[in-house]
């Protein structure tokens, strides 16, 4: 599935990324220099030779076409909201209400539904590998990278129309401001003011519709350099709940989808460019 050539190219890309990082550090004093670097970085994000996330896109495509499960069929007839097998622009409108499941689903919930119902696949192993690690790929991360990439260049337009979508939005908003746990944290503790940081880490304000939340939500899934993995919103929210000293949220639980609906609605109109690269 992965040509040796491709792996090598990604290797070169990574080397470029690191070299770029170093030169940016040096040139940080000069605004024009760093602007150029940012421009180069932007180009790199969408360049399959420089962004390791495109390995996941390729693997995801292969998984999409792979016949498996008791029904021995591929996912190609999976309906992500735009009709069976239609991928272009589907991710831009997720999460959304699905009539067949009578439920609002994010991309991963929907993929799981298709695996179980269309393919008759036992998803136990897929769920066990929900978060990839060195030497252990994640079907979900690969599939999401592939599917989301088919909405690159489009605008985020998560619908909040159906009564269940509206419920999700309202619940997501309430959960965003819900304080709890031994440190009294809510999402809003860290993400509802402009220009704040935790240690040296800048915190995007995600609580109101503007550029910050658009840049955030339009750039997931992302290849996280610090983890050497493509990560999805399911992973990001899991990691934030960890920082919040809350319990580990259940994978594919509706609360995470509700938060995603709220955040995506705030980010409406965001330019999607994925998989991106982040810290």
């Amino acid at each position: 599935m992965l040509g040796a050539l491709q792996v090598k190219l990604v290797g070169i890309g990574l080397a470029c990324l690191l070299a770029l990082a170093v030169s940016t550090g040096k040139g940080a004093a000069q605004a024009t220099d760093s602007e150029k670097e940012i421009e180069r970085y932007r180009e790199m994000i969408s360049d399959p030779m420089s962004n390791p996330g495109f390995l996941n896109v390729d693997r995801g495509e292969a998984l999409w076409k792979l016949a498996r499960g008791t029904k021995n069929v591929s996912l190609e007839q999976c309906d992500l909201g735009e009709g069976a097998g239609k991928l272009d622009g589907a991710y831009a409108k997720l999460p959304r209400y699905f009539k067949d499941a009578d439920k609002v689903m994010d991309v991963e919930q929907r993929l799981a539904w298709c695996m179980q119902n269309l393919q008759g696949l036992d998803t136990k192993d897929v769920f066990a590998r929900r978060f990839g690690a060195p030497g252990r790929t994640s079907d979900m991360e690969d599939l999401v990278a592939f599917i989301a990439n088919k909405s690159s260049g489009m605008k985020l337009a998560t619908p909040v129309q159906h009564a269940k979508e509206q419920e999700m939005y309202a619940v997501g908003k309430a959960m965003f401001f819900r304080r709890g746990g031994t440190w009294d944290f809510a999402c809003s503790t860290c993400h509802s003011e402009d220009g704040k940081r935790i240690r040296l880490q800048g915190l995007p304000n995600l609580s109101k519709p503007d550029k910050q939340v658009q840049e955030t939500m339009g750039s997931w899934p992302t290849y996280r350099v610090s983890q050497s993995q493509v990560r999805t919103m399911q992973h990001r929210l899991w990691d934030c709940y960890r920082q919040m000293r809350w319990p580990s949220p259940d994978y594919l639980s509706d609360g995470l989808t509700a938060l995603t609906v709220y955040l995506n609605k705030n980010a409406e109109g965001a330019q999607i460019q994925v998989p991106s690269i982040k810290r």
């Binding site: 990082a21 940016t24 550090g25 940080a28 670097e37 880490q201 800048g202 610090s226 810290r279």
Partner: peptide, 9 residues
């Protein structure tokens, strides 16, 4: 350097 990069971004 990487942090500086992402901050610049």
């Amino acid at each position: 350097a990487l942090i500086a990069l992402s901050a610049a971004l």
